[in-house]
């Protein structure tokens, strides 16, 4: 890493100490925070921390409905009348073959939730429900972001993106007035940032200790972030080779100097990630997604890219 310095200040140690509580193994999440300097210029950036769960346990999925939960308060969309509303929480499946797949919550009662998408699985599973990380969590006034001038891009699933700015000490829409700090940054997804000067992003939260399935879509700007807040991720440590269609779909890696200089375009031979001559990478030759960095994934059909956990 050349121009992007990261100071990972704390895996402040509620570390994975396993203890027996009433006959049940309880694993305490790893938490920490980081300060990352982004130089002036253009970046794709993904927060790697997650927020504490508001529910963790078993549930029954039927279509887009989930029952058997114990919830309090509203976990659905925000309910502003003067600005667009967005999901506030997501449900992630943590058991079975769909573990690591997540869905936005549209609405909920005290014991059930409706999902914005229909999972491909049904029946009894274990799940976790967490609040989304938002633009307001990522970009704060003390980051040094330039008011009115610096911009943030958030990408949808169909190739469009919305632009947000910072004015009056908050994230706003392109009118520089409407508060938009509640826009979610979905797990494993990145945002675009265009900076006139250097900023420092301070993030904190829990570190994921399980793999994540990040949804990617054809024609969309799929910015896929890594989960490791303190180290680079080699492409060969991903299952990218099996998940990208051979010889057509790709993952593009950029540097973090602010110039978005191309580091590598990786393809797949159906098994391993390859370079642009379709020579498979090995652990020595593999390029890395830089610390808290991202890759741009170009796919011909909707699918998931599995990102490994930060801690194993």
């Amino acid at each position: 890493m050349k121009n992007k310095s990261i100071k990972f200040l704390g895996f402040c140690l509620l570390l994975s100490s396993a203890s027996l509580v009433v006959g049940q193994t309880v694993s305490t999440p790893v938490v920490g925070f980081s300060k990352e300097s982004l130089p002036s210029g253009q970046h794709f950036f993904a927060p790697s921390f997650i927020k504490p769960a508001v529910y963790s346990g078993t549930a029954t999925i039927s279509g887009s409905s989930v029952t058997g939960l114990t919830l309090s308060g509203s976990l659905g969309l925000t309910s502003f009348s003067d600005r667009p509303n967005f999901p506030t929480h997501y449900l992630e499946i943590t058991s079975g073959s769909y573990a690591g797949t997540y869905y936005d919550i549209s609405s909920n009662t005290s014991n059930s939730a409706s999902l914005a998408q229909t999972p491909n699985t049904s029946g009894s599973v274990t799940v976790v429900i967490r609040p989304h990380v938002t633009l307001g969590d990522v970009i704060k006034a003390d980051s040094g972001i330039g008011e009115y001038s610096d911009s943030i891009s958030v990408y949808d699933n169909s190739g469009n993106f919305a632009s947000y700015y910072f004015a009056g000490g908050m994230v706003t829409g392109d009118d520089f007035a409407t508060p938009m700090g509640h826009v979610p940054v979905p797990p494993g997804k990145g945002i675009g940032i265009n900076l006139g000067g250097n900023i420092q992003i301070t993030n904190s939260g829990q570190v994921r200790n399980t793999a994540l399935n990040v949804p990617v879509y054809p024609g969309a700007v799929n910015v896929v972030g890594m989960l490791n807040p303190s180290g680079a991720t080699k492409l060969t440590s991903l299952t990218l080779g099996q998940q990208l269609d051979a010889y057509s779909e790709s993952a593009t890696l950029y540097d973090s100097s602010g110039s978005l200089a191309l580091v590598a375009i990786a393809y797949s031979d159906g098994q391993d990630p390859t370079d642009d001559t379709f020579t498979p990478y090995n652990s020595t030759t593999s390029p890395s997604v830089q610390t808290k960095g991202t890759m741009l994934v170009n796919v011909g059909s909707a699918k998931y890219i599995t990102v490994p956990p930060a801690t194993n």
């Binding site: 008011e147 009115y148 001038s149 911009s151 891009s153 190739g159 469009n160 993106f161 632009s163 700015y165 004015a167 392109d174 520089f176 054809p218 024609g219 700007v221 269609d245 010889y247 057509s248 779909e249 790709s250 393809y267 642009d276 001559t277 379709f278 170009n298 011909g300």
Partner: peptide, 25 residues
């Protein structure tokens, strides 16, 4: 041949767009 296939596969990238905003602070 595979390189050409890959280039064709990158057609999606040509749809890239940008956004321009103007501001009087």
């Amino acid at each position: 041949t595979l390189g050409l296939v890959a280039i064709l596969g990158l057609v999606v990238d040509s749809r890239a767009s940008i956004s321009i905003t103007i501001a009087s602070p």
